[in-house]
């Protein structure tokens, strides 16, 4: 399985090779992820019926938060594989694992299809989403020496950990505030 961006720029999954090839792969991946996020932003702006300013704002937001999300995804996957003891197959496994998100670009045509043929469009969209998960799993297997079950568990646990991390992030300031007697603010408020 090759993503269309790899095909277009004539790069392959040999991320282990040093030099210019790795750099070109990295650039291709950066472009691919950003392109997917732009497609999502265009769809979202259409759904919300936002104008040009809205689209620009949404694109920046999606790119920023999308990249933060992908960073978390790659880091979490790598962390989990380290814990389980799964060895990476390549020197930059995160690059390979992120390539799995490429089917997201198909959400452009799938949402467009919903306008003409609602049933088909919805099925297409669902297929793209399922396809993205499968693609993520497939590329994870390319990046790490893991079987399907281990790969699936890593992906699932990443989702759970993301939720818990978000909860922790929200709760920590509250814990600090209460644990330090509200930095003295609580007393003055009373």
């Amino acid at each position: 399985m090759r993503n269309p961006f790899s095909t277009l720029w004539g790069v392959d999954l040999a991320f282990g090779q040093p030099g210019e090839h790795v750099q070109r792969n990295t650039l291709t991946l950066l472009f691919m992820i950003s392109f997917s996020l732009v497609i999502l932003a265009l769809n979202a702006a259409g759904q919300l019926r936002w104008g040009l300013m809205g689209l620009v704002g949404l694109t920046f937001l999606f790119l920023l938060l999308g990249w933060v999300g992908f960073y978390w995804y790659a880091a979490s996957i790598h962390f989990l594989t380290q814990i389980v003891g799964i060895e990476p197959r390549r020197s930059q496994p995160w690059l390979t694992s992120l390539q799995g998100a490429w089917p997201l670009i198909l959400l452009g045509p799938s949402v467009a299809a919903q306008k003409g043929w609602l049933g088909f469009g919805r099925l297409f969209t669902l297929s793209v989403l399922i396809g993205t998960v499968v693609s993520l799993l497939w590329f994870l297997r390319q990046a790490y020496s893991a079987n399907w079950l281990q790969t699936f568990l890593c992906l699932g646990l990443t989702g759970v950990l993301s939720g818990l991390a978000l909860l922790g992030l929200l709760v920590w300031p509250v814990m600090l505030f209460l644990g330090t007697k509200g930095f003295g603010l609580a007393l003055s408020m009373v």
């Binding site: 277009l8 732009v38 452009g108 949402v111 467009a112």
Partner: peptide, 30 residues
């Protein structure tokens, strides 16, 4: 294969642009 990849990317971009420009009115109509 590169031609097919380029076509796919262009189709996806044009479709997404269409989604933005036409909004969700058609979808709502359906």
């Amino acid at each position: 294969d590169r031609l097919i990849a380029l076509t796919l990317i262009v189709i996806c971009l044009v479709a997404a642009l269409g989604n933005w420009l036409t909004g969700s009115s058609s979808l709502q109509k359906s």
